[in-house]
Design a protein around this nucleic acid. Structure first.
Lengths: 244, 244
DNA sequence: ATACAATTAATTGTCTGACAATTAAAATCG
DNA sequence: CGATTTTAATTGTCAGACAATTAATTGTAT
C-alpha cells in the first residue's frame, strides 16, 4: 500500500485511492481486515478523522464494511451482485436524468441490449423463466392496473427474459441498464389498445422462447420497440400540447 | 431534506442518504450549492466531522464536488459520462474478479452485447469510426507487438465499433462492460496464427460496416467470439498444465 | 469442572475546539 | 480608476476526549 501522499491534493482522497488500489490489485483480498484507524493514521502520517473520511469513501462504494467492538474494524467486502446492481442503477439513472438523454435514445439502447441475449434465452431458458414471464403477462392483463404497475410488470417480464440467458454477467449489465431507464419509461401512459398489443407480443415472445425460435423472438422484440417508441412519441406530444 | 435521524444507525450514512435522496428526487438540482458544513451540522444536529464523513461518501460517488474559499462549499455535480464509466468499470471489474466469473461467461456476455449494436453501427457509422477501426487493425498487424498492447488495441477497435452506433447510452453501457472484462481478456496469449485470423476478421468486419451489411457483421462477430473462446480455453489449459 | 456473570481491552462512532489553506469579495491606497 | 491589501467565509486537517459496541478474559458460584 502506497504511503507517499502529495500535500496539495485531498489527503483523504489519496488514502482512499491507495487502499482502493490495494483491493483492486488483490493485495487486500476479500474479508481481509484493514489496519485499525489508529494504525492507518500512523502509517499514513495523518489524523484519525482524515483516515475515517477515506474509509467512508470506500464504504460508499461498498468496497469495505466496518464493525465496532473487540474484533471490529474495516474489512474488505465481497461485492455482491445486488450491491453492484444498486450502484449501477443509481449511477445510470442520474446520468440519464442529468444529461437529458431523450426517450428515443434510451429506448433504442434498451431493446438493442435485450436482443443481445434473446438468442441465448431461446436456447437456455428454464421452465421457471417461462413461468415467471407468463405470470407477468397475466398481471399485465388485469383490469384497472395503473400505468406504473403495468410498467413495473413489464420490467419484471423483461428481467425474466434476460435471466433466461443464463449468463450472470449479462443479467447484471442488462438489469442495471433497464432499471436505470425506468424513470423515462414511466412517463408513458398505456391506454387499453397498446396494452393489448403489448400483452399479445409478450405472449407470443414467451411462446417463441419456449419453442427455441430465436429469430422470431428478435423480430417480436423489434416490434415491441416500435410500439414503445410510438407510445413515447405520443406521450411527449401530448405533454408538449398541454404545456403550450 | 429529511432531518430525522435514528440514533442506532451510522449518522453519517443516514445524512448521506438524506442528501442523496434530495439529489436523486430533484430537490437539489445540478450545480445547486449545499448548505455549508456548519449549517448542515446545525440542521442535522450532529458535529462537523460527522457531516464531513457524509459528504465524503457522496463525493466518492461523484454526486457532489467541493471547493474551498469564500464562495466554496459542496455543489451538486453533473455526472459526466467519463465519471460514470470510471465507476462502472471499477464496480464491474471487482464484481467479476471477486465472484470468480469464468472466462467463458465473460466472453459470451461481451460479444452478445457487441452484437447488440452492430446493426446500428452498420447504419450509422461515420467515416471517422471506420478510420479509427482501420487504424487499430493496422496497429495490430505491427510485428513485435506485446500481447497486452494487442489486447488494448482490440478494445480500442471494438470501442470504435460500439461508438459507431451513435447511441451514447449504448456506448456508455458497453464501454463499461467491455473494459471491466479486460483483466480476464488480458490472460490470453495471442500467438502469430490467431493474430492473423483476428486481424483478418477485423478487416472484413470494418468492410461490412462500411457496406452497411449488418448480417455479415454479426456473423463475423460470432466467429471472433469462437476464436476468442478457443484461445481462452487453450490459455487456461496451458496454465493448468504448468501448475499441476 | 462447568455455567454464568462481571471485567477488560480493542475498536469504531461521535463530539469539541482549534488552526491552516484557499478563495472571492470588499476595502484601501496610489 | 487600477492595483494591492485586507477581510470574511469555507473547506481541510489536527489533537484529544469520551461513548458505544463487541469479543475475549477473568472471576464466581453451583
Amino acid at each position: 500500500m502506497k504511503t507517499q501522499l502529495s500535500p496539495d491534493r485531498d489527503l483523504s482522497a489519496q488514502i482512499a485511492e491507495a487502499i482502493r488500489d490495494a483491493i483492486v490489485s488483490g493485495q487486500l483480498i476479500v474479508d481481509a481486515r484493514l489496519p485499525s484507524e489508529a494504525e492507518l493514521s500512523d502509517t499514513f502520517g495523518v489524523s484519525r478523522p482524515t483516515v475515517r473520511e477515506a474509509l467512508k469513501r470506500l464504504a460508499a462504494q461498498s468496497l469495505i464494511r466496518t464493525r465496532r467492538g473487540a474484533t471490529g474494524g474495516a474489512y474488505v467486502n465481497r461485492l455482491s451482485y445486488d450491491e453492484a446492481y444498486g450502484q449501477q442503477i443509481t449511477t445510470s439513472t442520474l446520468l440519464l436524468s442529468m444529461n437529458e438523454v431523450d426517450f428515443h435514445t434510451a429506448c433504442e439502447a434498451r431493446f438493442a441490449m435485450e436482443r443481445a441475449c434473446v438468442a441465448l434465452s431461446a436456447q437456455r431458458r428454464s421452465a421457471d423463466h417461462l413461468a415467471a414471464m407468463r405470470a407477468e403477462v397475466h398481471r399485465q392483463s388485469q383490469p384497472g392496473l395503473s400505468d406504473e404497475s403495468f410498467c413495473a410488470s413489464d420490467v419484471a417480464f423483461h428481467r425474466a427474459l434476460v435471466d433466461g440467458a443464463g449468463n450472470p454477467v449479462l443479467s447484471y449489465q442488462l438489469a442495471g441498464a433497464v432499471e436505470a431507464m425506468q424513470p423515462l419509461m414511466n412517463m408513458i401512459t398505456y391506454s387499453a389498445r397498446p396494452r393489448e398489443q403489448i400483452i399479445h407480443l409478450h405472449t407470443t415472445l414467451t411462446d417463441a422462447l419456449e419453442n427455441g425460435d430465436a429469430a422470431q423472438a428478435e423480430t417480436l422484440l423489434t416490434e415491441l420497440e416500435q410500439i414503445t417508441q410510438m407510445l413515447g412519441e405520443t406521450t411527449l406530444q401530448a405533454r408538449a400540447k398541454a404545456k403550450g
